[in-house]
């Protein structure tokens, strides 16, 4: 963990071995995805080009494609409102999409809060902030339950009153009001109170999307896990580090190399920072224990020295 919390060394070896692009590829593709999705929404209000209207709760693209957040729609259902066809269609499309690409891919590739909490995490490393509060990773499911309970009890979509995810996205597109304070709160929570407190422990939106990730074919695989040199960079960089171990170290227990934990956000950072190219994107079905192990390369004993 010492390496994990001293930023600058994570991925240094990968940078040396693989070069800048291949050691930052998924990070920048992800940022590009986040920025371009936000950019598409902003194109209307900023440049008067209305390809995409609405926000992440529900949108209409090119006046034809409806997309609706299934989570907010289900809250509406819990509140007692049966939504109209457009929203149902939109929610169905989004659900199917995330069932395919991994539920929490939403968190890594779409959600605007990701950049905020990633920034907080980066600053934690930069300034050596190691504060921690014992937060259960299961808290998010309690939060998820709470949002549905409150909707059912009050008959109103209560969570949307303060949801930082929609607050930030809607704020950027329609105007913030005091919404920035909520976003700042999340940032400070992650920076000062506890590591990855929001996205990794509390956010019910992520919790909901993780439910869709249980069956998604697209997963990260520790395909060449035999090459792992235990540098720990993947654990350090991973927003949900508990998902790695079963896949990376599970060979002895007869586990395949596929990261099956639904909390994996498919962000691909482990692929970037691994100097030994252990990880790659793959399909859930290719999970036999030996398929991808490259026998030719022997795992090195102990840690490799960081070259710099």
């Amino acid at each position: 963990m010492s390496r994990a919390d001293t930023n600058g060394t994570i991925g240094a070896e990968a940078l040396h071995v693989k070069g800048w692009w291949r050691s930052h590829r998924w990070l920048w593709l992800r940022r590009a995805s986040q920025v371009s999705i936000l950019g598409l929404f902003l194109l209307g209000p900023v440049a008067d080009v209305w390809w995409v209207k609405g926000n992440l709760a529900s949108s209409l693209t090119l006046d034809t494609l409806p997309l609706t957040d299934p989570y907010v729609l289900l809250q509406g259902l819990a509140a007692g409102h049966l939504p109209a066809t457009a929203a149902l269609t939109g929610a169905l499309i989004v659900t199917v999409f995330y069932l395919l690409v991994g539920g929490r891919a939403y968190c890594a590739w779409v959600c605007p809060v990701n950049s905020i909490t990633d920034a907080a995490q980066w600053l934690r490393g930069r300034f050596g902030i190691n504060t921690a509060t014992r937060l259960s990773g299961k808290s998010r499911f309690w939060m998820l339950g709470l949002t549905f309970l409150l909707a059912a009890v009050t008959g109103s979509i209560v969570w949307e009153l303060i949801n930082p995810v929609s607050m930030l996205h809607r704020g950027l597109i329609f105007g913030f009001g005091l919404g920035w304070a909520v976003v700042l709160g999340v940032f400070l929570l992650d920076l000062l109170v506890s590591k990855r407190a929001w996205c990794g422990h509390l956010c019910p939106v992520g919790a909901f999307y993780s439910l869709l990730g249980h069956v998604s074919p697209l997963r990260v695989s520790a395909a060449r896990r035999a090459q792992c040199n235990d540098c720990m960079d993947c654990y350090a960089v991973c927003p949900e580090p508990q998902v790695i171990r079963p896949a990376l170290k599970g060979e002895a227990d007869g586990r395949g190399p596929m990261i099956l934990d639904a909390q994996c956000t498919n962000c691909g950072r482990c692929i970037d920072v691994c100097s030994r190219d252990v990880f790659q994107f793959g399909l859930r079905f290719n999970n036999s224990i030996t398929t991808h192990v490259m026998k030719s390369v022997k795992p090195l004993a102990g840690k490799t020295e960081v070259l710099s």
């Binding site: 209207k53 529900s58 949108s59 907010v72 509406g76």
Partner: peptide, 17 residues
Amino acid sequence: ENDFLGACIRCGLCVRD
């Protein structure tokens, strides 16, 4: 109003149109 708060998902499509 009570039903509206359970039905509106705050997407702003009405605002846009």
